[in-house]
Amino acid sequence: MRGLARLLSAVLVVLVAACSGKDGGKEIKVAVSPASPPNLYEENGQTKGLDLDIFEGYCKARGCTLKITAYDWQGMLGAVVSKQADVAFSGISITDQRKQVMDFSKPYMENTWNLVSLTSRNIRFDDLAEMKKYSIGYPRGMAYTDFIQKELEPKGIYQVSQVKMYPSYNEVLADLQNGNLDLAFLDGTVASVYRKKLPIQDSYVFTGFDRFGFAFPKGSPLRDDFDHYLNDELGQQGLQAIIDKWMN
């Protein structure tokens, strides 16, 4: 066991060294989709959010610098898969399908999926069979597609072909407000922010199966060191403090 511990320590030292050169620190290429508050969004020309706070803490501990590039949702995930980015974060759901082409950090946050409508429409239902009455929209590349294909299509509840796809949540919510969409599929974290700004309400909430993670290219050693930071340096108490700061 001591030999294994020494080996793991040596690996971590190498990883830390790889992220802190004499030139002032390794540059980490970050892909984001800055339309997912509170996890990642733009305000007054600045990128900010819960996920950024977490990763900036890691980079401060390792002496790294971040080069952030904004994409639409699908482009962000594609940048990780193609290794154009070293990491991606914007409240990304961990799914089996995504794990086939990218690696994830340990889960850092639980999430719900919310179907929301305008309060003036007052659409509410408990039976999922009611979904087929309504048009639904969400950004391309979201985990909702896999969920609909695996869980809802076989039961005849809803088809992916019925969904209206958009570049980001901003366009989804604009169409919802303009009356071109009945329901918007939002992450619960996103819904909690927009409920304070827009006249929207939950029509149906899916719970108990979605968790967020930071996405890395397959085989990335950066993922292993980041998990070490989350587990052993930031810790659950530090992580929860960041989550509470942005969620409350």
Rank of each mutant, 00 (worst) to 15 (best):
K67I: 02
R62I: 05
I94D: 06
G235F: 12
R6S: 11
G25Q: 02
A129W: 07
A79W: 07
F104N: 01
D224N: 00
V32W: 10
I148Y: 01
G179H: 05
G179R: 01
L128T: 06
W246N: 03
V160M: 09
T69F: 00
Y204A: 08
D86G: 09
D182W: 12
E151Y: 08
G63A: 08
F55G: 07
A174H: 10
F185K: 04
G78A: 13
N170K: 15
D23E: 14
M1E: 15
A17Y: 13
Q162M: 09
V87W: 02
V11R: 05
S20H: 12
N39V: 15
L8W: 10
D53W: 10
G49L: 11
G21F: 02
I123F: 06
V205E: 10
L115R: 11
P38A: 07
Q237L: 09
P221D: 01
K132G: 06
V32S: 04
Y169F: 02
V13C: 03
A88H: 02
G25T: 05
V32C: 02
K29M: 11
W113I: 02
T65D: 00
P154N: 12
F216G: 04
L50R: 00
Q240S: 07
V101P: 02
K132S: 11
K197E: 15
F216I: 05
K83Q: 13
A35N: 01
Q149E: 14
L77P: 10
M131W: 05
I54T: 01
L183A: 07
D146P: 07
I242H: 11
P139G: 05
D227M: 06
S90C: 15
P38T: 08
D210N: 05
T119F: 14
D96F: 08
I92V: 11
T119C: 15
L186S: 13
Q162Y: 14
C64P: 05
D210I: 01
I157G: 10
K99Y: 00
L186A: 13
G57I: 01
M165W: 00
F55V: 10
S82L: 15
L52V: 02
S82F: 15
Q46I: 09
F226Y: 06
